[in-house]
Design a protein around this nucleic acid. Structure first.
Lengths: 294, 294
DNA sequence: CACACTCTGAAAAATAATTGACAGACTCGC
DNA sequence: GCGAGTCTGTCAATTATTTTTCAGAGTGTG
C-alpha cells in the first residue's frame, strides 16, 4: 500500500519523504534538523539557521516546502507533536511502533535487541577495548579476519570498513582447506580477528591455536558462553545474542565491530582521512555518481 | 560566574519550590505552566500570557523569579530539558561503561547507536512491515538481494539467514555486468531486496527500475534521506545511520533485517523449523565428513 | 481614612524575528 | 564557451516579541 501519506504526516515523516526533492543546502538543514530532532526546530529561525550553517531564507524555504505557511506555523505543529510524544506513556516503550500490541514481533524484537545492546556495551572492559583498538590501529601489523557460517558476513563487513581506515586488512579464505597457506604468511605481531559464536567450529579453533603459536595476536569476538578460542586470545569481547527467534541476533556483534572501528579511526585519524579521500577519489573516477553531498 | 542560577534544578522543580513565594496572579500562571508542561512554555510570551489569562509583564516577572535573565533564556533551558526527556530512557548515560569519561568513543558511539535504533524502530510503519513480511514469507516468490559497496555484507547476511528459513533466496552477482541475465530469470511476483544508502549508485537505481518493470516487487532498505529507488519500491524502510565517525553505521540496518527475518520466520514456522532441522543435519554430516567433533 | 506598600496590566520603547525582493554564483544543456 | 534556469545568501522592510516604564488598583495598618 501506501505512498499516499504525502500531504500530512509528522514533520519527521515529511522531512524524509521530501528529502529527495530538496536542494543541497536544504538537505544540509534537513540533516541537521533530523539529527537534532525535535529540539532544534524549537529555537528561532535565526538560531537554527546559524546552527545548521545556512541562511534564514533557506530555513523558510524548506519549511514552506514542508507545507507550512511560515516558520511560526511550523513551530506550532512541532509543539503539537512534542506534546503528543511526551504525553504517551513515556516511561517504557512508548517509542516503539504505536498501534501494535506489545506482543507484536516488532516490539518483542526491539526490546530484546535493546537489552542485548546495553548489556553488551556495559560489559566491555574499557582498558581491554582501548588496548585492542590501539593494536588494530598499528599499521605495521597486518590484520586477518575470519568468521563462521553465519558470522562471515560480519567478518566481511569488518574487512570492508577497517580496510578503508588502514592498510593490510584482508579476509581469510572461506574454505578452511586454504587456511594453512594463509597461516604460513602470517608474521609474529600480525592480528587474527575471529568471530565464533555458538556451534563453535572445530576448524576455527585449530586455526586460532595455530595462529597463536606462530606469534599472532588473536582477537576473539564471541557470545556470552565464550568460545574455547578464548584460551588463545589476547583480547576477547562477548556480545549478547539471544532474541525471540530460533536463531541468534548479530546486532550486538555489529555494534562491537563498529565501536572498535570508530576507536581505530579516531586513533589514527590523519592517515585514515588521507586514505578515505584517496579512496573516495578512486571510486569517483571508477563510476558515475549522483551529485550530492554526504 | 557571579550571580544568577543560584536555584538550579529543573524548571518544574523551581516552580514547585518557589510556588509559595509567588503572588496570586503569578500562581495562576505557574499553575497553567505546570498543567501544560512543558509545551506551554515553548510558545511566545505573548501567547503564553494570553493562555494563562495574565499579562506579559507577569510572565516576565515569574520567569525572573525562577532565576532567568529573560524569557529567551528561560526557553533555552526548557528546550534542554525537553531534549533530555525525549532521549530514550535507555540512553541514560549511567548505564554505559563506568570509569570512562563520557567523551570516550565507547560512550559517544553507544549513545548514537541507541538513539539510531530507537528512531529507526519507532519509525517503522507496522502495516507496511507486516505486509512486507508476509510477502517475503511466500515460498512461491523467489527472493533476490543486492547491496552496494558497504552494504553488500548486510545483503549477504540477509541471504544467509533468510535462506535458512525459506527456499529460493539468492544474492545478485556483485558485478553489475552480470545483472541483466539475472533480471531475465526474474518472474513477475518475485522480490528484489535492495540496500541503498547515501552515495546512491546509479547502477542500482537502474536495476531496481528494470526489475520493477518486469513485475518484480522491490523492497528498499535505505537511510533517512531515502534513495531515489523509492519510486519503484513497493516497500521502503529507512534506518538511521549517523554516528560520531567518518562513515555510516549499519547497526540500524542490521536490526531492520533481523526484525524482518523474525517476522518471516514466525509467519511460516512449521516449514522454517523443518528446513532448519534438515539443514542442521546436513551441516552435522558435513563436519563429520571433514573429521568430526564431539 | 489616609498612608505605605505591593501587585498588576496598559502602553511605549527596544530588540529580535520573519519574510520578500534581488543579484551573484552555480549548474546544466547545447 | 554561452545562455537559461536554478540555487542561495545579503539586505531591507515588515512584523512580532521582549522588556521597561508607569499609573492605578488593591490591601492592610495605625
Amino acid at each position: 500500500m501506501s505512498q499516499e501519506h504525502e500531504a500530512a504526516g509528522t514533520i519527521e515523516d515529511r522531512l524524509m519523504q521530501r528529502f529527495g526533492t530538496l536542494t543541497p543546502t536544504e538537505r544540509l538543514l534537513a540533516g541537521h534538523l533530523t539529527r537534532n530532532f525535535p529540539v532544534a526546530g524549537l529555537a528561532s529561525m535565526t538560531y537554527l539557521a546559524k546552527e545548521a550553517g545556512v541562511s534564514t531564507p533557506t530555513v523558510l524555504r524548506l519549511v514552506q516546502k514542508l507545507g507550512f505557511r511560515g516558520y511560526p506555523e511550523f513551530q506550532a505543529q512541532l509543539r503539537n507533536e512534542i506534546e503528543a510524544r511526551l504525553e504517551s506513556p513515556l516511561s517504557k516503550h512508548a517509542r516503539w511502533t504505536d498501534g501494535v500490541p506489545q506482543t507484536h514481533i516488532l516490539n518483542r524484537f526491539a526490546d530484546a535487541v535493546l537489552a542485548n545492546l546495553t548489556r553488551t556495551l556495559s560489559r566491555i572492559d574499557h582498558a581491554d577495548f582501548d588496548a585492542c583498538a590501539e593494536m588494530l590501529a598499528d599499521p605495521k601489523r597486518r590484520v586477518l579476519v575470519t568468521g563462521g557460517r553465519i558470522t562471515h558476513a560480519l567478518a566481511d563487513y569488518l574487512v570492508t570498513q577497517l580496510g578503508i581506515v588502514r592498510p593490510g586488512v584482508s579476509a581469510l579464505p572461506s574454505q578452511s582447506s586454504a587456511w594453512p597457506s594463509a597461516l604460513l604468511e602470517m608474521r609474529p605481531g600480525d592480528v587474527l580477528i575471529v568471530f565464533d559464536i555458538r556451534r563453535y567450529e572445530r576448524a576455527t579453533l585449530q586455526l586460532a591455536e595455530m595462529a597463536a603459536e606462530r606469534g599472532a595476536e588473536v582477537v576473539l569476538i564471541t557470545d556470552p558462553w565464550i568460545s574455547p578460542i578464548s584460551a588463545y586470545a589476547r583480547f576477547r569481547f562477548a556480545a549478547q545474542i539471544e532474541v525471540p527467534s530460533a536463531w541468534d541476533s548479530s546486532t550486538a556483534l555489529m555494534v562491537l565491530i563498529e565501536t572498535l572501528l570508530a576507536a581505530v579511526q579516531e586513533l589514527n585519524w590523519p592517515q585514515a582521512q588521507d586514505r578515505m579521500t584517496r579512496l573516495e577519489a578512486l571510486y569517483e573516477r571508477a563510476s558515475m555518481f549522483r551529485r550530492g553531498k554526504g
